Amino acid sequence: MIKFAAIAFFVSFFLNLLIIFLAKKYKTFLTDHLHMGPQSFHLSPTPRVGGLAIFSGITLALISAYLFKNLLKVSFSSNFPLLVLFSFPAFLAGFLEDLSGKLHPKIRMIFLILSALLVFKFLEVKIIRVDIAFFDSLLKIEVISLLFTAFALVGIANAINIIDGFNGLASMVSMMIFMAIAFVAYKLGDYEITSICVVASFSLLGFFLLNYPFGLIFLGDGGAYFTGFLIGVASVLLVKKHPQVSAWFAFTVNLYPVYETLFSIYRKRILRKRSAMSPDGLHFHMLIYKIFIKRLFNIYSPEIRNPLTSVFLWVINALAIVPALLFWNNIKILIVCCIFFCILYTYLYWKILKLKKINLK
Rank of each mutant, 00 (worst) to 15 (best):
V143Q: 13
S137M: 11
G165K: 01
D190E: 14
M36D: 08
V11H: 06
P47W: 07
I19R: 05
T28E: 11
F251T: 05
F229V: 03
K268A: 00
I127G: 10
V198L: 15
G168H: 03
A180H: 05
I193H: 05
S100H: 07
Q39C: 09
I291N: 02
L112S: 01
I343G: 06
D136G: 09
F226W: 14
Y191F: 10
Y300N: 13
T261L: 09
F55L: 15
F151Q: 09
E192M: 10
R267D: 12
K25I: 00
S235C: 13
I217V: 13
F135G: 03
A93D: 00
S100C: 08
I128K: 15
I113V: 13
A90V: 14
V49D: 06
K354E: 12
W248K: 12
L360H: 11
N330F: 09
L92G: 02
N298Y: 06
D280G: 01
S115M: 05
G281R: 14
P81L: 03
T346H: 03
A150R: 12
L353P: 08
F135C: 01
F111P: 03
L282A: 06
F120N: 04
L114H: 02
L319C: 08
F226H: 11
N254A: 12
P279T: 06
A276D: 03
